[in-house]
Design a protein around this nucleic acid. Sequence first.
DNA 1: TAAGTCTAGTTCTCTAGAGAACTGGTTGAC
DNA 2: GTCAACCAGTTCTCTAGAGAACTAGACTTA
Lengths: 216, 216
Amino acid sequence: MIPSENRLAEEYGVALATMRMAMKQLVDEGLLDRRRGTGTFVKQPAFRADLFRFFHVHDVDDPDIPVIPESRILSCQKVPLPPEAQKAFGEDPVSQCVKLERVRLWSGEPLLFEEIYLRLPDFEELLSLNLKATGPLLYPVFLEKFGILISSATDELSFGIATETSAKQLELTPDAPVAVIQRIARNPAGRVIEFRRVHGRPERFRYRVTLGDQPA
Amino acid sequence: MIPSENRLAEEYGVALATMRMAMKQLVDEGLLDRRRGTGTFVKQPAFRADLFRFFHVHDVDDPDIPVIPESRILSCQKVPLPPEAQKAFGEDPVSQCVKLERVRLWSGEPLLFEEIYLRLPDFEELLSLNLKATGPLLYPVFLEKFGILISSATDELSFGIATETSAKQLELTPDAPVAVIQRIARNPAGRVIEFRRVHGRPERFRYRVTLGDQPA
DNA sequence: TAAGTCTAGTTCTCTAGAGAACTGGTTGAC
DNA sequence: GTCAACCAGTTCTCTAGAGAACTAGACTTA
């Protein structure tokens, strides 16, 4: 909680209305939270999970019920940065990164295979973290453990063929067609935090997204 | 242009600052546009093309250059509403609709086949319009000719197999795998205006979208 | 004609303050 | 112990106004 507008206005030697306007701006930017009769609080950044939940399991009965597939982490290690990820991260001279591999399943069947590349040294500690203890969503973990907020992402969907690894994990024959997603995720400052490549079983794959003014 | 805040405040018997606050709200909602030293104007709604341009041709040289593929309209006629579209439009008892079929090409090769269903009677006039004269983007036409603004859309991507028609238009063998997009587009009030089903050639298909706070 | 100057009209920023609306805790009656 | 009433502190809405910043057009001048 921060001091009242009365106190702050006095402290900074400005009129009350001016202080109100300034605070209103910060509220609009999502940095403050005001409650009438109570006070003004610094808003802790909340990860908007609803914005980033695109993967929908193809449920024949009711495709409108969103489900979060189970998550199984395969490995987490320090590796040299592959060229695609290098390009995504931009000019920053990063040579090493953390690579996380995981499979996402639904009803026990593999759905997605994910290769996730994260910046060093920001995510150094991830290597010694017990990831099995966390939930299936990664971004809330980033926020809680590392103080890193993911606030925007660009996804690019296309079709490709499975690699040796992804075929094995998705229980497909090598060179089988797969759905491919490349994601670049950023913090509020626009800095690229994560590069992700996902392979998905095409027959169950479904990606939903809403653009523009979100309807109420 | 609307009267000055001075005049309006006097006319409605409120203080100037109050009128200013009210107008500020309308500006934030995107309904008014104020220019210092000039006046306040009613903002005409602008279609945010950048929000809805997802299709990117797979350009091996530079995938970052966005291109708008050529558009070729095949047909435009009144048809009974198919069940999927009925579901999208919701409770409204609409039995007939306008169906637009078109192919989108790049470098002369077919890329996407689109079936677009639009509400009646809103789009009655579309049947007698010369669509060849318009550009490759539909939503600006909706706005200019019918005063209908598309402000949000939900896309759902998946994989399927070509229909007889889509295979023919995309120059594929029947039952070939295709990318499938279903889109539901709405006006600012949340009313569903359009239902669209798109089939795309998988090897050239690429869909890009950015979520969350758009980076500057 | 062309360029600079002025001016009325507009929005923007800030001051100073009153009263309403609301919240969380304290007090008091039963 | 429970519940209602009260109260200090907070944000919200609105009033009244001064001066700065800016714009478009009219006017002046070379």
